[in-house]
Amino acid sequence: MPRNPQILLDNRPQGEATVDNFRLTEADTPALAPGQVLVRHHYLSLDPYMRGRMNDSKSYAAPQPLGQVMQGGTVGVVEESRHPRFQPGDSVVGMGGWQTYSVVDGDAPGMLRKVDTAHVPLSYYLGAVGMPGVTAWYGLDQIIAPKEGDTLVVSAATGAVGSAFAALARARKCRVVGIAGGPEKCAYAVKELGFDHCIDYRAHPDVKSMAGALKAACPDGIDGYFENVGGYILDAVLLRMNAFGRIALCGMIAGYDGQPLPMANPALILINRLKVQGFIVSEHMGMWPKALAELSDLVQLGKLRPRESVAQGLAAAPEAFLGMLKGKNFGKQLVKLV
C-alpha cells in the first residue's frame, strides 16, 4: 500500500488562522479490510466552514480534532476495492480529507459515491454539482422560496455557492444581485455568471455606503437574501429588505476568527416580519438528489459555468485556505493532487 502525505490540524488558532496551525506529515496506508475501498484523491475542496471547525467552541458540528487529518471533501479515483459496488477506475466523491489517499468503508452512509464524468468535470462535484451547489439550491428553494420577478441578493457572489445561486435564481426568473470583492469579480459576476448587478464591498466598506449601493441596485427592495458573510453587510441588507422577506443564513465568515458579530438594528426583523433561517445542508440529505439533478442539468446546458482557483499540491493547501478566507480566490477554491 502507498505512503500517504497528510495535513493535520496541529494546534488551534488564537484569533486569525496561520499556516503554523497545520502540519504536513506522511503515514502508512493500511491494507484494505473486506468492504473497504482505496481512493486516490485528485482534488481537495477548501471551504469557509472549515475555519469554524478549527476552533474549540460550540458550533453546529464537532471541532476538528487536533493531531488528525483536516476533514474535507475530495474527488478521485478508486485504486483498489474490496467492495462489490466499487471497481478500480471508478470516479468518486467523498470526504477523504486533506491527504493523498483515503481508505473508506464502502457502506458508510454519505462517505463515498460514484459520479459520472462524461458530462460533468470531476472537480465540479466539489463545487457547482456538490455540497456548495446543493447549499445554494436548498437556501434558495426551501427557505427563500422565490416567486418569479423577486429581487434576490447573495454575498460572496463569485464563490462556489454564489455562482450556483445566480444560475438557480435566473432559472426561476428572478432578478439577482451579488456582493463581491473588487471590480474584476463584479465584472465577472455580471458578464459570466449572469447577475443583473454586482456591488463591490471594498468600495462600500460601511453600513451607510453599502445600504446606498443596495438601494441603487435594488430600487424595489430585497425579497430574498442568501447570507455567507454577516457583519455590516447583513446590517445594510436588513435596511433594504421588503416586508415578509426571507433570509437564508448559511455562513458568517466575518466572524470565523472568533470576534462577535453584533447586529445594529435587529428590530427590523420584527418591523418587516422577516423570516431568518440558518441551515446546514448536510442535515437535509434527502433533498440532495433533486438539487444535484438540477445543478447537473444547468452545467450541461451551459447555464452554470463556475470558475475555479486551483492550488497545486497538498503542501499548498494551508496557504490556499487562508487566502480563500481573505477573498484571494476567484471562484471555487481547490487543491489539485495529481
Rank of each mutant, 00 (worst) to 15 (best):
Arg3Gly: 05
Gln14Gly: 00
Thr18Cys: 14
Leu24His: 04
Pro30Lys: 15
Leu32Glu: 02
Val37Gln: 09
Val37Cys: 04
Leu38Glu: 04
Leu46Asp: 07
Asp47Gln: 02
Pro48Val: 09
Pro48His: 07
Met54Thr: 01
Tyr60Ala: 00
Ala61Val: 08
Ala62Gly: 11
Val77Ser: 14
Val77Thr: 09
Arg82Asp: 04
Asp90Pro: 10
Ser91Thr: 10
Ser91Pro: 07
Gly94His: 13
Gly96Arg: 12
Gly97Leu: 11
Gly97Asp: 07
Trp98Ile: 05
Gly106Leu: 13
Met111Thr: 09
Lys114Ile: 10
Thr117Asn: 12
Tyr124Arg: 11
Gly127Asn: 07
Ala128Gln: 01
Val129Leu: 07
Val134Cys: 11
Ala136Gly: 06
Tyr138Trp: 13
Leu140Val: 01
Gln142Lys: 11
Glu148Ile: 06
Asp150Glu: 13
Thr151Ile: 03
Thr151Cys: 14
Ser155Met: 13
Ala156Ser: 12
Gly162Gln: 11
Ser163Phe: 04
Ser163Ala: 10
Ala164Trp: 02
Val176Asn: 01
Val177Glu: 07
Ile179Lys: 06
Ile179Phe: 13
Ile179Cys: 01
Gly181Thr: 03
Gly182Ile: 14
Gly182Pro: 04
Lys185Thr: 03
Lys185Gln: 10
Tyr188Thr: 06
Ile199Phe: 10
His204Val: 06
Pro205His: 15
Val207Arg: 15
Gly212Cys: 14
Leu214Ala: 13
Ile222Cys: 11
Asp223Val: 02
Glu227Gln: 15
Tyr232Phe: 15
Leu238Pro: 09
Phe244Leu: 09
Ala248Trp: 03
Ala248Thr: 02
Leu249Asp: 03
Met252Glu: 05
Pro260Thr: 07
Pro262Ser: 08
Met263Arg: 05
Ala264Lys: 08
Pro266Asp: 02
Ile271Arg: 13
Arg273Glu: 05
Pro289Phe: 15
Pro289Ile: 15
Lys290Tyr: 05
Ala291Trp: 06
Gln300Gly: 01
Gly302Trp: 12
Gly302Arg: 05
Leu304Ile: 01
Arg307Met: 04
Ala316Trp: 02
Pro318His: 04
Glu319Cys: 00
Gly323Glu: 00
Met324Asp: 00
Leu337Trp: 00
Val338Ser: 00
